[in-house]
């Protein structure tokens, strides 16, 4: 053990396949051609938003397993989560797939927390194929955390747009030629008193910076060791704050710094500060980053996903927004 919450995986479990499904609006994304499946309907042709959320996750898991020439009956664990009430969409996905299941909630950091859990199960030899992933559906999240979708409230430039996307990754014991999970840092909840749910980037930035610093100092690595250091969904405001915070700690941000939320919708001003949601980080990590690693463009990456751990109840009761960030280090050997 290198430090509290810092994990080193000796067996370096691999991510052998991924599946990413997105809604119709995500056609605007520059990553569009890397997504596996696009629905033409925000509700995937189903009755409710929540069903659509479950369906997207279900499809993403099946796509990932298909790429392994496998099927749900051969998977050992399902480790997924989403943002809707008590994670019911994920529970329905688990029920449909019939894979032994642990639901995970770290808000938008679920993409990484699930990956870490899958890697741990694989590391101790208890799993040959664990599915990790996260999903979010725009309308179901908006109506729960903010206002009805059609309500005409003016959003500030710091507001982010919850994506409709699901990403799943199949984690297996080490395989040559696939990205492998080497190290991870479990986040500590940070709360610097931010209360504005329309500026989540600012609330999450300290958590991201904290986990980043802990990871680099704990494992004695440098920024130059990584081809890409990508945060999940800080958005434009949060990303700037995060870079300022790590500069205060003596790190100089460079071109290898990316943020999935900033990049997800390109430069379209309709989306204000950028994308957010559990599906945002998982969709980009499991399509763009995974693809670039497979193609050999990235040798070593650090993925930091941040989650704002608020509920509609907590912010109406004027509580602050506690935030967490988990990090995982992938490399191609």
């Amino acid at each position: 053990m290198v430090g509290r919450g810092l994990l080193t995986f000796k067996t370096t479990p691999s991510i052998m396949a991924t599946g990413v499904t997105v809604g119709p609006l995500e056609k605007k994304s520059p990553f569009f051609d890397q997504f596996d499946k696009v629905y033409d309907d925000e509700r995937c042709g189903l009755g409710t938003n929540e069903h659509a959320n479950a369906k997207m996750m279900d499809d993403a898991c099946k796509i990932a397993l298909n790429k392994l020439d496998s099927n749900p009956s051969k998977a050992d664990f399902l480790l997924i989560g989403d943002l809707v009430n008590q994670m019911t969409p994920s529970n329905f996905t688990a029920s449909a797939l019939g894979i032994p299941y642990i639901g995970l909630f770290s808000a938008c950091a679920t993409s990484i927390s699930s990956l870490i859990t899958a890697a741990l199960l694989t590391e101790v030899g208890m799993s040959n194929c664990a599915i990790a992933g996260a999903a979010s559906q725009h309308m179901s999240v908006e109506r729960q955390f903010r206002n009805p979708v059609e309500y005409g409230a003016q959003k500030p430039e710091t507001a982010q747009w919850t994506v409709t996307a699901a990403g799943a990754a199949a984690v297996t014991p080490y395989q040559q030629g696939y990205p492998s999970i080497e190290k991870a840092t479990i986040g500590i909840v940070n709360d610097l008193g931010m209360t504005d749910p329309l500026n989540m980037g600012a609330a999450m930035a300290p958590a991201a910076a904290d986990t980043f610093v802990r990871h680099l100092q704990g494992f004695q690595t440098k920024i130059e060791d990584y081809d890409c250091i990508m945060t999940g969904d800080l958005g434009k405001t949060g990303f700037t704050l995060y870079k300022t915070l790590i500069e205060n700690k003596g790190f100089q941000a460079n071109d290898s710094f990316r943020d999935a939320g900033v990049e997800f919708y390109g430069e379209d001003p309709t989306f204000l500060a950028g994308a957010s949601g559990a599906g945002c980080s998982s969709a980009v990590y499991f399509s763009d980053v995974f693809g670039k690693m497979m193609a050999g463009n990235y040798k070593r990456v650090l993925l930091i996903a941040t989650g704002a751990l608020l509920s509609p109840l907590s912010f109406q009761q004027k509580d602050t927004i506690p935030c967490i960030a988990h990090a995982v280090e992938l490399s191609m050997k």
Binding site: L25, E42, H138, E142, V149, E150, W161, D268, T270
Partner: peptide, 11 residues
């Protein structure tokens, strides 16, 4: 409106 419309998540 609830009888005839559905909410659309379009930007």
């Amino acid at each position: 409106a609830s009888l005839i419309f559905k909410s659309e998540g379009k930007a």
